[in-house]
Every structure is written in C-alpha cells, then in structure tokens.
Design a protein around this nucleic acid. Sequence first.
DNA 1: GCCCAGGTGACGG
DNA 2: CCGTCACATGGG
Length: 268
Amino acid sequence: MIKIINKDLNLRKIAQSGQCFRMNETAEGRFQLIARDRLLYLTALEDGAVFECTEKEYESFWKDYFDLSADYAAYRAAVDPSDAFLTEAAEEGRGIRILRQDPWEMLITFIISQRKNIPAIKACTEALCGRWGVEIEDTGLHSFPVPEALAGASDDDLKHCSLGYRVPYVRDAARMVSEGRIDLEAIAKLDDEELLEALMKVPGVGPKVGNCVSLFAYHRIAAFPIDVWIGRMVDEHYGGRFPVERYEGFAGIMQQYIFYHALQTKNK
DNA sequence: GCCCAGGTGACGG
DNA sequence: CCGTCACATGGG
C-alpha cells in the first residue's frame, strides 16, 4: 500500500476526464484500473490516493503512469489571470493529470472514439478486451488485446463489438502495427510534428485522434486535440482560436481542464 | 421519429 | 485550399 498525498491527484476527476476508458469507480472512492497487463486498485483520499501495490511497482510503473513527478500547480499558476473562464476550469480540474498510457491501446480506443460518447467508447473497449484480451490472473478481467489478436479477427466478429463503420479502421490499424508498417515504439523518438504525421498515416486517424494519441500515450503535452466539446468552448470563450502560444509546450494540460469543465457543465 | 457523440475520408469547387 | 457529406450504433 502506497499512500500519496498530493493536492493535484484526484482519482475521480482523472477517471472522468475522458483520457482513459478502463479506470472505473467500482464503489464510493474506490477505483479499478487496467493498464497494459496490470490491474490496480486505488482508494481516493481528500488530497491524493492510496495505491494498492508494492513500492517497487509504484516506483517502477505507476508513479510514471500518473505523471507524479510533474508539478501541476505550476501549470495552473501559468493560467492567464485575466482569463476568468480558464481560471475557473483549471481550478475545477485540479487533480487531473495526463496519464502515460499504452500507444497501441490509445490508437485503437481513440479511433473508436470518433462520433461516440464516452460510455459507448468504454463499452466497445470492454467488448474488445473480453473477446480478444488475456485474462488477468483469474480475475475475470482482461487486458487490452495485442495487435496480432485484432489483426486476426474477422470483420464480422469486430462488428459485434459495436464498432460500426470503424471496423475497417480498427482492422487495418491492427494489421499496420502487427506487420510493422508502423512502429509505435520507434516513433516515440520523433518530434511532435513528425509523430502526429506518422500517426495520421493510420486509416481513421486524423488530427483529433492523432493529437489524443500524442497527448495521452506519448505524453506530448503541447498537443491540443480539438473535438466537438473543445470546439464549442473555444468558439464561445476565445472567438474560435485558443491562445496555445501563451501556454507554449503544455497547452494540452489546459485542453484537458477545458474538456473536463465542458463535461461537468453538461452533466449538471 | 429526432439529435448527438473526444471525426475522418472522399469528393467537388 | 475550402466546404459538404456519408459513415454504424446506442442513448436521451
């Protein structure tokens, strides 16, 4: 058990922030998270969280996964004080962190995400995991399927996961990765622009999905994905263009605060 | 029945 | 370069 006290670590906000689809609050203040081949349970604290794992697991994996070396208070302090909207969004989103998730999983889940709401994305993801993932130590829970597993799936089987018109996107992306036509590890060394370009060679990946993968898998915190929600917020509060230059190098953090704020507002 | 969801690719101008 | 449109599926 690892207890982390940190005012910028809020499990519920992270789970609801739309960046991850396999972190769920299974009981009040208790969270289940599946990442790569790992299953983790966590408990929310007022300011922080308890990680149910060994110190070694925390230090070697989860600390980095939750980006716990970064100072999010500093990011929030950079918010333009004359920008009342972002000031409020950043305060509301205090506790959100940008996770370092698996590139392959992010690629597929964000290809699926287009024209779906978050519950639907989660349902599709769980369907894929249940059908082609590997069970994690007799828990009945499954890891996200490896590329070869999805590459070998039939279109008909994929269709039963409610992928709709995205079936060819998922199938072709899986083939590209499993055949080595895109190397998701190797492209990590590219700069932001080249990385986005490489990701967008995958069918079904445009600027929005590419930026989400850059941000949530490769931790390119300058990436600023624009979806319908962000688009609305930017139109409404910034006349159509967010001042990314004011947040040079970390606009993606601001993007996440704005996205969370938009979802919270909708859910009221 | 309608509208919408963390968009993209094809097509025509 | 731009704008428009179809693309499955499920929930409100």
